[in-house]
Amino acid sequence: MTSTRSRTVTRIRRVVALGAVLTLTALLVPDAGPSPTRAALVRVQGGDAVDADDDVVWILALGSDARRGQSVLGSRADAIQLVGMNLRTGHATIIGIPRDSYVDIPGHGTNKINSAMVSGGPQLMASAVATMVGLTPDYVFTTSFWGFRFMVQRMAPLSVYSPFSWSIPAATVQRGENQLDGAEAIAFARMRKALPGGDFDRSRDQGFLLIAGLRRVRELTERGPGQLERLLVSFLANTYVDLPPDELYRLARAVLGIDPSRVTSCVVGGSTGTVGGASVVFANITRARSIVDRSRDDATLEGGC
């Protein structure tokens, strides 16, 4: 008899709980006590807590224009990304909402959507997004731009794709993949004037940054056991969190189950104009709701945006 060894090897990853953007932050925030001046994670009233039975969890990820010492929970939200994560399949959908979208803000008339954070904090911000797109996020995660810069610096370089080339004193970005440090990443997130699509292109680039951050966090946490637990300790030391720690753990563990190659990033389109002398975006609400409806239950977008 011929003796032949046969070996089959298969591997599968399943994570049945979630949260996306926060692990990214855990890595990056500088060490300090928890304070809403750097970053904050809150559960939305009426939203579902992350649970093992959930298939999809939605996080509203915000970049605040808060300056040092100001609360990110009371300052304008200048980067607005709605992130849906499928805990069962590892798919995710990122929907970029232009900050100047002129929309109904519950109880506060019509205004730019980024003003909702000033008027009513993360709960009103979530309500404004829900009114706009027809979906209430489960969590709101907010970071200041300067906090985000330090975060990225802690895990740099971040490999980010750019459809366009541009250069400013803070950063030079080539078309294609770029290796960005913290300062360059923040420049990339804020760049608008050099992009033909203005606000819309900037929102798209912010989605690309989220994907790049997720990919990098996964790389780092796969270096050895216990990396997530270590990062969460840092996260809690630097972030205002109103979730029970077990919920935070499940949320963070879930983000690592998202496969960056299964993430679709879209931007809510529209047209620009002025209201009362201020530049605004008249978002295509019908399209926004269509994107959300298609991805609501599974965080996937068959056929793309």
């Binding site: 060894r5 046969s6 090897v9 591997r11 994570v15 563990r253």
Partner: peptide
Amino acid sequence: FGYDLQRSVHAPELRGSSGS
């Protein structure tokens, strides 16, 4: 609440190999 597992089967006395 979640898992990331790898499975392998070793059959030292089998003829040939199965790759499934």
